[in-house]
Structure formats: structure tokens, C-alpha cells
């Protein structure tokens, strides 16, 4: 993984609250799960919160057993993965933003629609001033092929949840067909997006199969394990 950066999510001193938002299908849940496990491996007390009120399939809860086995507290929607389409937020979710003794990784629903739900936790997050609000970008997704399109989504999310982004995550991939070149081209576009937004590009997330190879030409690579598939 190279030298650890001095600040940001991969630094020795990450922020207490990490929020992952972005276009739907950009890879937020997978990164949230992997990042929570990463913090836990570093010996930090971690809670993961599934605040995705939009998407009923492929959720944090799919990895619940693994996460709990790793000592990570999982807070998810009361009806997640059931047959009830009732997007309600759990009361315990307040603990994620109020209990300052634990690190919190928050998986936010896609687009501005998903980010509205974050608004109610806004005051605690802003008051504590110890958060990282990361925009996850996959430039292989059809509606965010270019930095300008991703920028539009970024601004819509900020407007919906009223929490400013602090960094960009390059998660450009084509699932199993991802090549290092795919990641590299996403990295270039992420840099343009970072410039447009006036934010740092804090990491590039890459599936384990090619992460070592990608890290040769791309800085701040964070390795991901894949979640479930059929």
C-alpha cells in the first residue's frame, strides 16, 4: 500500500466519522464494509451504519455475520433484507454520531434521494467537526462517465444532506472485467473531478485481484474484497 498519507482515511489518524456517498451503484456499500474492517484490523472500535433508504438489495446487512465476527457493530435499517419495503431509520443510528468513543462508517443511499436521510444527523456531525465526507466515483457507470457529470451528482448530494464533501474516492471499475487501465483512466478523471470540486483525491479502491498491480502506478490504493454475487 506504500507510505501512509499524513491525512485522510488511510492516514494513521483518520477522522472519527466516515461518510460514504455518491451516485447509486458507485460502490459505497462495498467500500464501507471494507473500510470498517480495515479500521477494526487497526485495533479501533468501529460501528458501521447502513443508512441506505433507497436500495433494497445488496446491502451492508449481507455482510453482517462477517462484520460482527470481526467485532464490528452493525446498525442497519429495521427492515433491511426483509420483504418489507419500509425505509425507516433505526433509533440506534444516533449512536453513530453521538457516541464519540467509537469510530463510525456510514453507508449513505445513492444520489441526492439517498442523501436526504442524512440531514437529520447533520447537526451532530458538523458540531463534532471530526468527519470525512467522501464522494465515491465510478467513471464506468453510464450516468457518471465524465468528471462534469459526477460533479453534478456531487453538488446534488451536498444540497440534499447539507454536509460538505471533504474528499473524492476513485472506485472506477467494471466488476470482474476491471483492468489496471480501467482504474488508471478513472484515476485521471477523479483528479479532474477533485480539481472541479476543490477537494483532495484521498484514495483509489481496487479489487484484490489487481490491487497490487494498480498500486505500482496509482497512489493511495485501498484493497477491496468483493461482496456477494450470483
Amino acid at each position: 500500500m506504500g507510505t501512509a498519507p499524513v491525512s485522510g482515511p488511510l492516514s494513521p489518524d483518520p477522522r472519527r466519522v466516515t461518510l460514504l456517498a455518491g451516485h447509486y451503484g458507485s460502490g459505497k456499500t462495498n467500500i464501507a464494509v471494507n473500510y470498517a474492517e480495515y479500521l477494526s484490523r487497526r485495533g479501533l472500535p468501529v460501528s458501521i451504519g447502513d443508512l441506505d433508504v433507497v436500495n433494497p438489495y445488496f446491502r451492508t446487512k449481507d455482510s453482517e455475520d462477517e462484520l460482527r465476527a470481526a467485532g464490528i457493530e452493525v446498525i442497519s435499517l429495521p427492515f433491511a433484507n426483509s420483504s418489507v419495503d419500509l425505509p425507516s431509520l433505526p433509533a440506534e443510528a444516533y449512536r453513530l454520531v453521538q457516541d464519540q468513543s467509537r469510530y463510525a462508517v456510514l453507508d449513505i443511499g445513492g444520489d441526492d434521494r439517498g442523501a436526504y436521510a442524512l440531514g437529520r444527523y447533520r447537526q451532530y456531525i458538523l458540531e463534532e467537526q471530526n468527519f470525512e465526507m467522501l464522494f465515491v466515483a465510478n467513471f464506468m457507470r453510464p450516468l457518471t462517465r465524465e468528471p462534469e457529470e459526477a460533479m453534478e451528482v456531487l453538488m446534488e448530494i451536498e444540497e440534499a444532506c447539507r454536509i460538505p464533501f471533504t474528499g473524492i474516492v476513485n472506485n472506477t471499475n467494471l466488476a470482474e472485467e476491471t483492468l489496471v487501465g480501467t482504474v488508471q483512466s478513472g484515476y485521471e478523471k477523479s483528479k479532474v473531478l477533485a480539481d472541479l470540486a476543490g477537494l483532495p483525491l484521498v484514495m483509489t479502491t481496487v479489487y484484490e485481484k489487481i490491487s497490487e498491480e494498480a498500486a505500482k502506478s496509482i497512489p493511495d490504493v485501498f484493497t477491496l474484497k468483493l461482496q456477494k454475487k450470483y
Binding site: 451503484g25 465510478n138 464506468m140 457507470r141 453510464p142 462517465r145 471499475n173 467494471l174 466488476a175 472485467e177
Partner: peptide
């Protein structure tokens, strides 16, 4: 060229 899509999105774009 390929893009990464959900099945529902693929129907819409097609």
C-alpha cells in the same frame, strides 16, 4: 466499450 450497469438501467438505456 463496456460500462457497469444495473439490469434495470440496462433496460432503460437499451
Amino acid at each position: 466499450e463496456k460500462v457497469l450497469m444495473k439490469g434495470n438501467e440496462a433496460i432503460a438505456e437499451a
